[in-house]
Computed example of a mutant assay.
Amino acid sequence: MTFFLLAVSLLYALFTFILWLTWLRIPQVQSVVVDGDAPVITVVIPVRNEAESIEDLLQDLSQQAYRHFEVVVADDSSTDNTLAIVQAYARRSSFDLHPLPLTNEQTASPKKRAITQSISLAKGSLIVTTDGDCRVGPHWLTAIAAFYSQTNARLISGPVTFTTEENLFDSLQTVEFASLIGTGACSMALDFPTMCNGANLCYVKEVFVEVGGFAGVDHLASGDDEFLMHKIAARYPNGVRFLKNANAIVRTKPHRSMRAFYNQRKRWASKWRAYESYLPSLLAVFVFLSNAAPIVAIVAWLTGFLNGNTTLVVIGLKAVPEFLFLRQILVFLQKKSSVNVIPLTQLIYPLYVVFFGLAAQGKGYVWKDRKLS
């Protein structure tokens, strides 16, 4: 057991150290677009019951410095007045805004349906997706368009973080989310893309059609972002890139209730079983084992099966490289105040990963007032 714990911990330390160095080597690009290279962008926003926040996002879009864009808001049968707010805003909007009411039909993946129908109406050559509860800065689309012009990437993943932290629970979510954003960014830089976030995602419309959109994964409620990224990466091995630009940061609200947090994380964790590529599945198992190792080591020490020095080594091999990596990501995301919460997150996160890794084996969760499988 000692050999296994040390081996897993050493591999994880090496893995995290490589991520840290990779992040440092990803260049921070400039938001400069040559007028002749300015692509038309269609911003797709699938929504359901976002009456409290959708107008804030639309106001952010009205203030974009980049003006070659249109917006499609696909309303998935909201039970509040989300659609009415969007329709009213469209009548006075300074940009092309197209409300798209969707029928309340039974579907395994409402979000994929919303995105697919929106893309069928899109006039832009680039599709940019975000969520109805997000906020974006005035140079968000400029940063995306500039990066596309500079790289000709087939899919661009952008940074996402939370708006403000009002309590410790919010700060813990910020640190955890930063680890996902950073790991996804580094995996793209290493040409082995594993994860991205649909709250800040861009891809070429023709490429979406070329890979068949969500065909083959449309029976899964989650994964409108990652499964599409994997399909595009398989067709274009060097075509998936991360946009490391502070102007491109999208901010969303942290979960205020444990129930909402649980359902989202279970939804995320449930995706790994459906990965066709071996790498994301292997990474998911590796992360699970790496986070289980400190728990096993502490239990083994308390029960006399492991000495204290070995236990400290197992914990240290995980904690030190993680701190270095997470600190860099949080500083980039303009969340330096959350750096102090990293040690507490490291105490809780192993239990969290093990719990959701096991919880994801069960089927079904509630999302947007719907029970999905």
Rank of each mutant, 00 (worst) to 15 (best):
V71F: 01
F69G: 00
E55Q: 12
L19P: 01
D76G: 05
Q87M: 03
S78C: 04
E52I: 13
D76Q: 07
V86P: 00
F69W: 04
W20V: 08
V47S: 06
L57Q: 06
E55V: 13
V32L: 11
T22E: 06
S62T: 05
L61V: 02
Y89I: 03
F15R: 09
L58M: 05
I41L: 09
F69L: 04
A38S: 08
P46I: 06
F17C: 10
V44D: 01
D80T: 02
R48Q: 10
E50L: 09
V44E: 01
V34K: 13
I45P: 02
A88R: 10
I85T: 01
R25N: 13
A88V: 04
I45K: 06
L58G: 01
S62F: 04
Q28G: 11
R91P: 07
Q28L: 10
L11S: 08
V73F: 01
E55I: 11
V33Q: 07
A74E: 05
D75T: 05
R91Y: 10
R48Y: 04
A65M: 11
D37N: 12
R25E: 11
T16F: 09
E52Y: 13
R25D: 12
D37K: 12
F15D: 07
V86Q: 00
S77L: 15
N49W: 10
D80G: 07
W23E: 03
L57A: 03
P39Q: 05
P46G: 07
A88C: 10
L58H: 01
S53K: 14
S78E: 01
D80K: 09
V72D: 00
A51Y: 08
P39I: 11
S31K: 08
R25G: 09
T82A: 00
E50R: 09
Q30S: 14
E70R: 06
L14T: 13
Q87T: 04
A84M: 10
L19I: 08
L83I: 06
R92H: 08
V33H: 04
E70Y: 07
I45A: 05
E50G: 03
A38I: 06
P46C: 07
A88K: 08
A51W: 10
